[in-house]
Design a protein around this nucleic acid. Sequence first.
DNA 1: CTGTTAGCGCCTTCAT
DNA 2: ATGAAGGCGCTAACAG
Lengths: 332, 332
Amino acid sequence: MNILTVAKKAGVSIATVSRTFNFPEKVSPATRELIQQIARDLGYHPNASARTLRTQRSRVLGVVLPTLINPVFAECLQGIAQAAALNGYSIMPFTSNYQDDEEERIVQNLQACGVDGIILVVSDPASSKALDHLHSVQLPYVLAYNSHTEHPCISVAGTQALASVVQHLAALGHQRIAMVCGQRSASDRAQQRYAGFLNGMESAGLQPWPLIEVPFIKAAVEQISGALESDNRPTALICSNDLLAIRAIRAAHLSGLRVPEDLSVTGFDGIQIGEDLTPTLSTVVQPNQEIGQRSVALLVDAIAHGTMPDASASITLPHTFRDGESCAHAAP
Amino acid sequence: MNILTVAKKAGVSIATVSRTFNFPEKVSPATRELIQQIARDLGYHPNASARTLRTQRSRVLGVVLPTLINPVFAECLQGIAQAAALNGYSIMPFTSNYQDDEEERIVQNLQACGVDGIILVVSDPASSKALDHLHSVQLPYVLAYNSHTEHPCISVAGTQALASVVQHLAALGHQRIAMVCGQRSASDRAQQRYAGFLNGMESAGLQPWPLIEVPFIKAAVEQISGALESDNRPTALICSNDLLAIRAIRAAHLSGLRVPEDLSVTGFDGIQIGEDLTPTLSTVVQPNQEIGQRSVALLVDAIAHGTMPDASASITLPHTFRDGESCAHAAP
DNA sequence: CTGTTAGCGCCTTCAT
DNA sequence: ATGAAGGCGCTAACAG
């Protein structure tokens, strides 16, 4: 089932068939409709590979995410998928499991697949080999969630967001506030949020608690419990993401503390499920689907112009603080 | 950067370069290594579209899932992605938002993209236009989560699983047990699970409560609360999926009931986050990533043989019941 | 408005 | 073990 079959059946040349699919207005209405009818009858669709080979454009976007197990990225991918479809693009997603050598491997693979551009979340833009590679081959890309002055990024202001969380907790009377994060050193997001924590604590005139770092997510509950069992424990835990916040709530429970009566907990990401938990999660809400959609928009626009998206086109989307049941006034 | 450039630089014909990539053993070790070295230096990779055009095989698998917001499908996609990569395939995922006309549209689009096969989750295999289309064009496919005797499926025994949940609750002394589900009529999974509920109740000699059907997920909490506020309320709620169970727990909370002391709640799916909630979710655990992996395996195998996966190759994977904190003995 | 034609980059049979 | 050549299906000049 190819263009020639359709052309013969319609008694026209293959060029005319091609035109009806690519520039319908350049074909007389009569023949156009005839060809469309025949194509429909035969179930003909232009062959994507042949098109790509000829035009050098695949209309496919590569996507590199750390994982799909964390709903924040699944939600983002949903946004990417929708926006891509709306723009006539398909997507090819891969997960890097937060490993930068995987990020690079996937990017190379994606390039070999002939994608027109890539949307990625990297561990750290400043040291990413994947981004170096993209530059060296001049393949358009947009970073999601990361933020870096030299790269086009769609993100939220993590530092400010976290400072405002500290302020919120301080206003509730909390003084002993600790931050919980994954591998801070491995992620620019965690770094920025931690900086915001320090800023916020300083502004509030509070002494920052030692950072509770949880390198292995499996042991998160245990480690957080440990930190809660000292006699002079924090009264509030600011977690660098929602998944950690959920585990912090569990850790509190296992340590015999009630949330929020004995301990306030906040997250970061705004995953949808957080609204349905008991207690509902207090968290910094990022527009996850929109981050995906905007990334697509920026990338598609650049591709249409035959250029690389520029760092100056980066967008910082607004975040909000969702004031859930997991935080409350400090006990007197 | 094409095969000719490499061939010239190596002083061989393009055929030899092609062979080194496709049948390395058919090239003398010396020239093979020379060519590989040159290819590496030049950053050459065979052009995927040209390959596809020539061989008529894209090494891409289409994926159709209802949504990525429900972690059960995100986890499955993660499994699909891994297994596909391991087999040298890429994937192209789309979401149908549980709408069967979308399922069909996506499948047609996927076919036009030239995918070698499709993994899909449909609302109801018995009435799916998408499956009809796949048959009519003889495009290999595997159903995930669905189960139907005439289609190749990777799933778990939902009916049995649910019957055993009833048995478990009955053994805990529950007598007033109700089931909560989404749009039962729209999904074969919900139908099967409901059948299991009825079977289980009958075996236990209990009167099944009227089904609590929640057509719009947004209103789930409200509707479930309503069902809990009658004076002769159920003491246990069996939810047809984990997301509903989470909302049921919230509904209980809002109705002033404690889980599990006043109300037991169970889910279905085994999403990973359920283990970290407080209370931990009692649920039927499906091997979500494995469902994805097995789907890929079955599909890739059929593609390799140039055939359609056969319905007789369907696999029913084992499920387990995770006995979490959300259910307990019935109050005396 | 329509037709003819030259590749896009690669794989693969057939020779050598 | 290697080379020559045809063609996969399509788009985009160019010509009419």
